[in-house]
Design a protein around this nucleic acid. Structure first.
Lengths: 249, 249
DNA sequence: ACCTCTTAGAGGTCAGACCGCTAATGCACG
DNA sequence: CGTGCATTAGCGGTCTGACCTCTAAGAGGT
């Protein structure tokens, strides 16, 4: 009956802190279907007495789940006020990445490598099968980047939208979320680096051309070519902005 | 001077909550180099008076940063007690994924797709350039899976170790962290599914053979082959365990 | 030299009060 | 009768101050 004949080490029997029990209680409610996205939690005071913990314990749990993108709190009165179940994993992922990049637990090189992996796959997937809505989103983003007097900020917005459209076309919500989170987390460093970039005019021209080429490859169903262009684009941009190892050429 | 002639919309002028200001203050200290990994924060009471917020505000901030893998608290006395700067992004990423998979903000299909993308890339990268230490880690994991009386749990541990060794061989810490987090987050569902699996003996034999084949391809520097085998392995296992869309065959 | 007890300081928890915000209510005025 | 303003009630947000539990380290006895 023992499933491990050699080594039966005792479980660490961790004693949970109050707010962790509250987190579990809330998670269980969501898992069991008693709480859906959009539903309101009971007021903090009520929840505290129900769970027999202090209001502080409830609030710590809410703070954690809020940071994870699972809850959302709003003061005030009426139906709009209270703590609600949400589903904002992208925002949470963005916060997480931004924080750990800032603390250099992940380097820009690490993040760029991961981005290359994800976006190669996205570009390839989009090239295999591109639905009209995604195609329209890409074209719209490309056009926005062509506006002559666009600021670096609005250019970057459109740039992000283009890459995100490719990621979402691939249909995998987690890898799309990761792509979005990486772009968002790097937004400030990218803009700072773009401010410093001399020759912005020629650089933006080059970026636009690369984007158009990627789109053309996707639209022509050139799977491998689209992936290669995406990788080259990301690596070249990273090398210009951050001085990373340039793509082989 | 205005970088945007057309549209100067007011900044939303968000009023931050106390714990968010505390988070910023702690982040700033880490960013400025005043706090390094392993350093202790001031006691909560002291920090509260220094930042002119209540202790509850400090504690909420600590809870959030703890959930993100940036801090670690320990009660008691002496040098081991207190709140410390940590760097545990993998644990935090695992918690995040486990939570959102449980709440079905990401489906198992989503996660599997992302895993395929990451591990295809890892396997290919490892096949291009494999250092001896990583190779040894893979072999050790393979051997552990061959132990005849291993429980499903210890088999799964070794399985995870094998895939993680490949991911870490690729050198990108973010994609390795993601791979590790995905495996950890799926551990419980995998074990539960494995418990239900009839014919475990033949299935584990097949898994071992697939692992060996992946390793052989990596060791022989067969880049594309290694990636294809990794993808087929992951998709087939997912289809057996979770009934997902089986690989094309 | 060793063991035991005490202590101090850290996080963990709690209760209660007050503040600030905002939808809903209801009254007064046009 | 309808409009608009003041009031209210209930929510999250904050603070205070107290007490508990845990544990390294020192004090002290054996």
């Amino acid at each position: 009956m023992t499933d491990d004949a050699s080594d039966p080490p005792w479980q660490p029997v961790k004693k949970a802190r109050a707010h962790e029990l509250v987190i579990e209680a809330i998670e269980d409610r969501i898992l069991s279907g008693a709480l859906h996205v959009g539903d309101a939690l009971p007021p903090e005071r009520e929840l505290a007495t129900s769970l027999e913990v202090s209001r502080a314990g409830v609030r710590e749990a809410v703070r954690v789940l809020e940071a994870q993108g699972v809850l959302r709190s709003q003061p005030g009165a009426g139906a709009a006020a209270g703590t609600f179940v949400a589903a904002l994993p992208r925002e949470a992922l963005t916060r997480f990445l931004r924080l750990h990049v800032a603390l250099s637990n992940f380097t820009i090189q690490d993040v760029t490598d991961a981005r290359v992996i994800l976006e190669r796959a996205s570009a390839a997937s989009a090239a295999r099968r591109l639905d009209p809505a995604s195609r329209a989103a890409m074209v719209a983003a490309l056009d926005r980047m062509d506006e002559p007097h666009a600021s670096r900020d609005s250019f970057n917005e459109a740039d992000t939208a283009f890459h995100l459209a490719i990621a979402e076309a691939s249909g995998s919500s987690l890898s799309a979320a990761l792509t979005a989170a990486i772009r968002s987390a790097m937004k400030v460093p990218i803009l700072r680096a773009a401010e410093r970039t001399e020759q912005w005019q020629s650089e933006s021209t080059r970026l636009r051309a690369e984007h158009r080429a990627i789109f053309a490859a996707i639209d022509a169903h050139e799977v491998e070519h689209a992936a290669d262009l995406a990788e080259a684009h990301i690596r070249r941009a990273a090398s210009v902005l951050f001085g990373l190892a340039a793509p082989q050429d």
